[in-house]
C-alpha cells in the first residue's frame, strides 16, 4: 500500500509539473502572438487623438517594453491574483469571466448530454444492424452534419425555428434563475428554449464522433472470443449485447467524451457568436477584435488550465485502472 501510494504521488507530481510547464509555454506563445494582432492603443484612444496622446497611453500600459518583460509582469500579476482590467470595457477581467463562465459550461454540458443521448443509441444500432437503411442514414447524415460548418447549421436552425416557425428565440440567453453567483438557464422552460438550438448546433460534431466510435468499438468487441463464448453459454442476446459488449466498448468512448468536453468548451466560439450566447467564446472573439490583451490572456490561460486538468484527471483514471502504471 505504502509503496504504491508513493509511486502514485510521484506520478501525480510529475504530471503536475508537466502541466505547469505546458501552461507556461501556452501563455508565452499566446503572449508573443498578441504582438502580431495589432495595436490596442488605436482602439483605446479614438481617431481624434494626437500621436503624443498615443505615445502616452503606450507608455502607461508598458507596451513599449520588450515582449518578454511584459510577459513576466503579466505572469507576476496573475500569481498575485490580479488578471487586470479589460482595455475595452474597463471592467475587471476575472469578474467578466465569472459572469460568462456559467453560460459556456451549461452550453457545453447540455450539448455533451445531447451528443451522448443520441450518439450512443445510434452507435449501438449501427453496430448491431449494420445493413439496415436506418444505420446507413445515420452514418451518412452524421457525415453531412459535420461537413456543414457550424455557423451555417446554426443559421439554418435559426431560420427554421425562429424566423419561419417562430417557436424559439433566435439569440441570447433568457429565462435565467439566479443561484448565488451562478445564473442558470436549465431550470425554466424559457431557459431551455434559448439553449436548445445552440446546444444542438454545438453537439453535431461530438454526436458524429460518438456514434462512429461506439459503432467501431462494439463491432470489434462483438468479434472477440469472450462474446462468442458468452453466446455459446446460451446467454440471451440482450445480456450479451448490452451487458458484455456495450460495457466493454464504452471505456475508451468515455475517455474520449471526457477529453472532448475540453474541446467543446474551448471551441464553442463560433456557436456562441452565431447565437449571441453570452459565454466565454464570444468574449474571446470580441477581445481579439479589439486586441484586448488582458482578456485574451486570461481566456487562453483558462482554456489551457482546463485542458491540463482534464488530461490530469484522465491520466489519474488510467493509473487507477491500469495496474502497470501503479507499480511503476
Amino acid at each position: 500500500m505504502g509503496a504504491i501510494g508513493l509511486a502514485m504521488y510521484k506520478y501525480l507530481l510529475q504530471r503536475l509539473v508537466q502541466g505547469i510547464l505546458v501552461m507556461l509555454v501556452v501563455t508565452f506563445v499566446a503572449f508573443a502572438i498578441f504582438h502580431f494582432l495589432g495595436d490596442p492603443v488605436n482602439n483605446m484612444v479614438g481617431e481624434s487623438a494626437t500621436d503624443a496622446d498615443r505615445q502616452m497611453v503606450r507608455l502607461q500600459l508598458g507596451l513599449d517594453e520588450p515582449v518578454i518583460v511584459q510577459y513576466f509582469k503579466f505572469v507576476g500579476n496573475i500569481l498575485q491574483g490580479d488578471f487586470g482590467i479589460s482595455y475595452r470595457t474597463r471592467t475587471s477581467v476575472i469578474e467578466q469571466m465569472a459572469v460568462r463562465l456559467p453560460a459556456t459550461l451549461e452550453l457545453s454540458l447540455v450539448s455533451g448530454f445531447f451528443s451522448i443521448l443520441f450518439g450512443i443509441p445510434m452507435g449501438i444500432y449501427c453496430a448491431l444492424q449494420p445493413k439496415s437503411w436506418l444505420s446507413r442514414n445515420f452514418l451518412v447524415g452524421s457525415l453531412v452534419g459535420i461537413s456543414i460548418p457550424t455557423f451555417l447549421s446554426g443559421l439554418l436552425l435559426i431560420y427554421l425555428f425562429s424566423v419561419t416557425l417562430g417557436w424559439l428565440p433566435s439569440q441570447g440567453r433568457g429565462g435565467l434563475v439566479s443561484l448565488g453567483w451562478w445564473d442558470t438557464s436549465l431550470v425554466t422552460l424559457k431557459g431551455w428554449s434559448y439553449i436548445i438550438m445552440p446546444a444542438l448546433t454545438l453537439c453535431i460534431y461530438q454526436l458524429t464522433l460518438i456514434t462512429r466510435m461506439v459503432r467501431a468499438e462494439m463491432q470489434e468487441v462483438i468479434r472477440t472470443d469472450y462474446i462468442k463464448f458468452a453466446r455459446a453459454r446460451g446467454l440471451s442476446n440482450y445480456i450479451v449485447q448490452y451487458r458484455h459488449a456495450l460495457q466493454n466498448s464504452l471505456v475508451p468512448v468515455v475517455t474520449i467524451i471526457g477529453l472532448q468536453l475540453g474541446t467543446v468548451v474551448a471551441f464553442s466560439i463560433i456557436t456562441e457568436t452565431v447565437f449571441n450566447w453570452p459565454g466565454l467564446g464570444q468574449m474571446f472573439i470580441q477581445s481579439i477584435e479589439f486586441v484586448d490583451i488582458p482578456v485574451m490572456s486570461a481566456y487562453l490561460i483558462f482554456v489551457g488550465a482546463f485542458f491540463v486538468i482534464l488530461n490530469l484527471i484522465v491520466d489519474l483514471v488510467y493509473a487507477l485502472v491500469d495496474p502497470r502504471l501503479r507499480a511503476a
Binding site: L155, I158, S162, G166, S170, Q171, T273, F275, N276, I285
Partner: peptide, 15 residues
C-alpha cells in the same frame, strides 16, 4: 449582437 445574420433573424422574428 455581433453576428449580422443573427441580428437580422432577431428582427425578422420580432425579438
Amino acid at each position: 449582437i455581433a453576428s449580422a445574420p443573427t441580428r437580422i433573424a432577431a428582427l425578422l422574428s420580432n425579438e
